[in-house]
């Protein structure tokens, strides 16, 4: 749909800089089974992720996890309602479960826009340390920036950049991920 109305409204601008609580990231404790599923899914056969004996001979001295295994993920806590059932009761053609109450601490406020479609635009990642087995990963989110772009068809879209820093339970910085999404 073509429209000349800006989507970068004062309400949208008001959430720039909003910072979440410092909270445990979505993956919970780094564990062997979760690590197996993750590394299989990214097709990374590195034995540093699973071979204890070999890992002891590496600079890490123990099995490590890929950086991004430690953060993100949409796992709702046990005590929350089922986000899938909730979502599709509310809207049978919903494109995802992102609007279901997450029950998770650390969520940023919703960007107040009527743009409903969401696409991943890009990422800027800085790596410092790998998570290891048994680590609890903590994160903090911030809306680093929101800008507006106008498509070739004249439609307005928002590009929302969220900066998420991740630490382990010892307070060591693991990585920073600045992810940008397109709302259109």
């Amino acid at each position: 749909m073509t429209t000349s109305a800006t989507k970068l409204t004062p309400e949208v601008k008001s959430v720039i800089g909003a910072t979440s609580e410092f909270t445990e990231a979505g993956w919970g404790v780094v564990n062997k089974e979760g690590l197996r599923r993750f590394t299989h899914a990214i097709m990374d056969p590195d034995p540093r992720y699973w071979d204890n004996d070999f890992a002891k001979t590496t600079r890490y001295g123990e099995v490590i996890a890929p950086h991004l295994h430690g953060g993100g993920g949409g796992r709702p806590p046990w005590e929350t309602l089922d986000p899938v059932s909730y979502t599709f009761r509310q809207n049978p053609i919903a494109d995802s479960t992102r609007d279901a109450p997450s029950g998770r601490q650390g969520a940023l406020p919703r960007v107040p826009t009527d743009l409903v479609r969401l696409l991943n635009a890009g990422n800027e990642i800085e790596m410092y340390k790998h998570p290891i087995m048994g680590d609890r990963v903590y994160s903090q989110n911030k809306y680093a920036n929101i800008i507006e772009r106008v498509g070739r068809d004249g439609s307005h879209m928002l590009i929302v950049t969220t900066e998420t820093s991740h630490w382990n339970q010892r307070g060591e910085l693991l990585y920073i991920n600045r992810g940008s999404s397109i709302r259109r």
């Binding site: 993750f38 899914a41 590195d46 890929p66 991004l68 990422n123 990642i125 790596m127």
Partner: peptide, 30 residues
Amino acid sequence: NGSWKQSVLPGYLKDLCLPDGWMWKCSFQH
């Protein structure tokens, strides 16, 4: 998924650095 790519591309760069180098920064667009 974009999130898959954001794990796969840094993983490839990690491999280039093995065993004792480091993949420090990576930025990309989808």
